[in-house]
């Protein structure tokens, strides 16, 4: 609290009381009303029974762990392997998408920061931003068209004679992974670009001059500098991928359920907001825990991500 006060005092002395009050109020509203309260409300929901309107506030309206229990044991009829499996698969798939994004975006960010100049650089940045102009649903359907049985890729592949029977990219989840990877490319490129751009080009040349091969230059010189950027980008991409709904809904194969789809089903199809909230909380906590674990494994601290 003392530190907060000193930060505020310093802000006042630098920008004046008016600006300071405006900023602190908006930040307060943002954090409290838009972030904290809805989450708290959802958390509160997740510990309640799904009651009919007339029972709300009545004697039956007590806190319960049954919604979380359902995720673990269904209705007491053994372990809920189905839902847990979906969660596990969602996390794994999100990790895969994140890894693909790192592999794709690291070279892009490096070239953007150290090789591309003028028109080429501007075209590259434009090319990265344009995907965000297209509506997410539209983009997902576009990928369906490209990867469908009669889609562009099957059409070209078959007419060139690479394969005879249409490949089911949708069932194999190629379309889903491609779509998710493509969607979050920008969120990976920019943090890495930010980190790598600060690298002094002489350091690369110095390493080369001392005999370092191309891959060693990257492994020892560029990658350590890019690490906070990769961590920041990976966190964002992972979180957003695990929380994606439209892309799995439209591009996912028939057998592939995303955990967000379960949440959606509880809210919308089953009308059980309490259980939906519990499932959403489970997803959030699992993802957070996973990210923190990964940060520990890769020795990244939160401060580095904020940079």
């Amino acid at each position: 609290m003392d530190r907060l006060k000193s930060v505020f005092d310093e802000f006042v002395s630098r920008h004046g009381i008016g600006v300071a009050l405006f900023i602190s109020l908006t930040v307060l509203v943002w954090v409290l009303v838009l972030i904290a309260l809805p989450q708290v409300a959802m958390l509160d929901y997740s510990f309640r029974h799904n009651l009919s309107p007339q029972d709300i506030g009545g004697p039956q309206d007590v806190y319960t762990l049954s919604n979380y229990g359902f995720f673990l044991f269904r209705d007491g009829s053994g372990t809920n392997t189905l839902d847990m499996g979906v969660l596990g698969k969602t996390i794994l798939a999100s990790v895969l998408v994140t890894i693909i994004d790192v592999i794709v975006c690291y070279p892009i960010a490096f070239i953007l920061a150290h090789s591309a100049t003028g028109v080429a650089a501007r075209l590259m940045i434009l090319g990265l931003i344009v995907p965000f102009w297209v509506n997410e649903i539209l983009r997902a359907f576009a990928f369906r068209v490209i990867f469908g049985a009669t889609g562009l890729i099957n059409g070209v592949g078959m007419s060139l004679g690479f394969w005879d029977v249409p490949i089911d990219f949708i069932r194999a989840n190629v379309a889903l992974y491609s779509g998710l990877t493509y969607t979050y490319i920008l969120l990976m490129v920019f943090p890495i670009y930010n980190a790598v751009e600060a690298l002094d080009r002489n350091q690369i040349e110095a390493a080369q001059d001392m005999g370092a091969s191309w891959w060693r230059v990257h492994w020892r010189i560029v990658l350590p500098v890019a690490k906070p950027g990769i961590a920041s980008g990976a966190t964002m991409v992972f979180m957003l991928t695990a929380g994606a709904l439209a892309a799995p809904q439209i591009l996912g194969g028939p057998s592939n359920l995303w955990f967000t789809q379960l949440v959606y089903q509880w809210f919308s199809d089953a009308g059980n907001w309490q259980r939906g909230s519990a499932y959403a909380a489970i997803l959030l906590v699992t993802c957070l825990g996973f990210v923190l674990l990964m940060m520990k494994v890769f020795k990244v601290n939160i401060g580095a991500i904020g940079r």
Binding site: E205, A207, M210, G211, P224
Partner: peptide, 21 residues
């Protein structure tokens, strides 16, 4: 013959030491 294959070592104006090592 690339810089890594020559019997020379260059000291850069800004030294180009690796700050993370």
């Amino acid at each position: 013959v690339g810089p890594n294959k020559r019997p020379t070592a260059l000291i850069f104006q800004n030294l180009a030491l690796f700050p993370l090592m």
